[in-house]
């Protein structure tokens, strides 16, 4: 199995586990951990898309022809997306955790089935 195929499979596994965790788990903290799995899976997928077998970093070095660069350089665009996704992921996780703390103080439980419905345990 090539490195790229293995990375694709790992990304798919992380995405499926993350999505299933958000949908099926009842604990708010576990749901947030599942969310980070999902986000990391997407990042890995983007990095894998950008990967070029035997390629190099997308910097045009002195003496390198433009054709050689176009053939061998890894895609530069996904790296930008991954960076942005990391920032957005951190912000979203912070908001999710802050809201979980607020709801825990209000309802005294981390069970999503109770806290998100607004009932006292």
């Amino acid at each position: 199995m090539s490195l790229q195929a293995a990375a694709f499979l790992t990304a798919a596994f992380l995405i499926v586990v993350g999505a299933a965790g958000i949908l099926l788990l009842d604990n708010l903290i576990k749901k947030i951990i599942a969310f980070t799995f999902l986000s990391d899976g997407v990042n890995l997928l983007l990095v894998t898309v950008a990967y070029v077998e035997g390629g190099h970093v997308p910097i045009l070095l002195p003496g390198m022809s433009i054709f050689e660069f176009a053939e061998k350089a890894a895609l530069v665009f996904p790296a930008g997306i991954v960076l942005t996704n990391i920032v957005i992921g951190v912000s979203t996780t912070a908001v999710l955790l802050a809201l979980t703390i607020v709801l825990y103080r209000k309802y005294g439980t981390l069970k999503a089935s109770i806290a998100l419905r607004g009932e006292k345990e």
Binding site: V42, V49, G118
Partner: peptide, 29 residues
Amino acid sequence: PGAHRATLKYMFITGFAGAGLAVSLAILL
């Protein structure tokens, strides 16, 4: 409290939509 609950639920579905759009972007790229 209703606003907090609504936001938390909304943020969880954001996880799907944002990640989904990023996957779609990766596929098209």
